[in-house]
Amino acid sequence: MRPKVLILRTAGTNCDYETEYAFRLAGAETALVHINHLITARANLDEFHILALPGGFSYGDDVSAGILLANEIKYKLGDLLRDFVNSGKLIIGICNGFQVLVRAGLLPGLNSNIAQEATLAMNTSAKFECRWVHLETQKSPCAFTHGLKWRLYLPVAHAEGRFTAPSQILDQLESNRQVVFRYASRYGGIPSYPDNPNGSDLQIAGICDPTGRIFGMMPHPERFLTRLNHPRWTRDSLPEKGDGLGIFRNAVAYVQQNFS
């Protein structure tokens, strides 16, 4: 069975092409769907197993990153999304998609009333940065990261990526094991800038909701699918497959196990 992935587009979405390619490489069927087609019911979310919110600058990130799309999702697609999640399906948000999920209150999703509990603030370096970072995979219920290797290497490219939340929220994230990825130091120990590229609390790079089925991360797994994506493929001996592919394969496998 080939799981079906809806890749949500709107004005300013821009990582849709490579996100679509990643899911196809992982064995899924994909459709790029504009949000207005969901709102006007010209496209049907029920037909899909996975909803992907790709990176980009939805609506220019006006006001703050992802907030306009977050509100649109919350107020125009709220019921649709609730049903989607309750039927055991998966949502992934990457970079801008993560910002949207957090601002829409879908992540970390500690309360059932969909209120924003955390945020992705301006990087401590106060600027947009594109660089490769090391990640440590945490033990979590996340459906996207089962059996993933302990360390991943992926690029980030954002200005607003500093995950921050009140300490009681952070405590809950830890005790629920909702932290999925942390930025890691190249040399061991607590990572400082630029290894923690944005100054995130607890070095958080990605989190899931308590069910593990809604997942968001700032780094871009769709940008490391083959060894040629790696910045040092001309000097290091590397496996053919990139570190990011496993995340998409896990999503496909999860759907195949639960929906066949």
Partner: peptide
């Protein structure tokens, strides 16, 4: 580094090596 040189997933020789 202020320019996204990875988007679209196809830049295989990057400006910094």
């Amino acid at each position: 580094r202020q320019y996204d040189h990875e988007v679209q997933g196809g830049v295989v020789l990057k400006p910094l090596v």
